[in-house]
């Protein structure tokens, strides 16, 4: 399946030889170098790396929010040219519209007066377990609840891929692990392709079918580790801990050479 020429392929998302250069007054900085990644339909990929490794930049490129880069990004064999609802995006903060209630935030520019929209919104409110809060305003929600609204808003548009940029980074540990379970639930029900950026090792191993480890200066993919554990995973299990250590070791390899080769450009 890998090595296939772009055209017809089972890969929903193809990232080919992507380079990204930030132009700064002090000189150009290479943020991403030679990124190659193929994501299968329905796959859950977690992207992990130290801050400054360009993982969020990569996600913005895939989302179409950043269009100045070299290389190819293909979604269902079509090049990405700008943001669209096919690429759902969850920001680090929920970014809800404060003047809209939960249900209207999820509906966004769709009218709740249409029976089909109404039905779908109710469905997704149930999916993210927010029944009873349809008419609440964002200021009345906790951080976890607000992020669930944002997830429902993206999923309602039936995206081909859901891009998540450290979505649970601002939540407390308890809420975070709960949200991870909610997200896995959703994934198992909807089989939405997920590309999840995080700097949390446990999160990466708990969620991902494959963990992509990135290295900074210039940002590139160090290695891709498959996590062959069945869902639901147990964080305390010995095989989980083994894999966690394996990723951590890769992670440490990432940190070390950074100092001797990390000249940037």
């Amino acid at each position: 399946m890998y090595g296939m020429v772009s055209g017809m392929s089972a890969d929903t998302l193809i990232i080919e030889q992507v380079n990204k250069i930030f132009q700064a007054p002090t000189g150009n900085v290479m943020a991403l170098k030679g990124i190659d990644l193929r994501v299968r339909k329905g796959e859950f990929i977690t992207l992990i790396g130290p801050s400054g490794c360009g993982k969020s930049t990569l996600l913005k490129i895939v989302a179409g929010l950043d269009t100045s880069y070299e290389g190819n990004v293909l979604l269902n064999d079509k090049p990405v040219s700008g943001p669209s609802i096919e690429k759902g995006f969850i920001f680090q903060e929920p970014r809800l519209f404060p003047w809209l209630t939960v249900e209207k935030n999820i509906a966004g520019n769709l009218s709740l007066k249409q029976a089909a929209v109404r039905k779908k919104v109710d469905e997704f409110i149930e999916l993210v377990r927010l029944q009873g809060f349809e008419k609440a305003y964002p200021r009345e929600l906790s951080g976890g609840m607000a992020q669930r609204v944002a997830i429902a808003r993206a999923l309602l548009r039936n995206p081909d891929v859901l891009l998540l940029d450290e979505p649970f980074g601002a939540l407390d540990a308890f809420t975070r692990s709960h949200m991870q379970e909610v997200l896995l639930d959703i994934w198992q029900n909807n089989r939405t392709t997920m590309l999840f950026v995080t700097h949390d090792l446990d999160e990466a191993v708990f969620l991902g079918e494959r963990v992509v480890i990135m290295n900074p200066r210039p940002g590139h993919i160090r290695s891709i580790l498959p996590i062959d554990l069945p869902f639901p995973r147990k964080r305390t299990g010995s095989s989980f801990q083994e894999l966690r250590t394996k990723v951590l070791r890769e992670f440490e390899k990432v940190e070390e050479p950074e100092f001797d080769t990390g000249a940037g450009i």
Binding site: P83, I85, F89, F91, R95, F97, W99, G108, N109, R153
Partner: peptide, 27 residues
Amino acid sequence: NRLFDVARVLQFSRWDLILRLIVPASL
């Protein structure tokens, strides 16, 4: 500005942008 990014990701039309983001935000 961050809500403008949301509007772009949700593919708001120019009309949506005015009516659903700018007007309520500046009300």
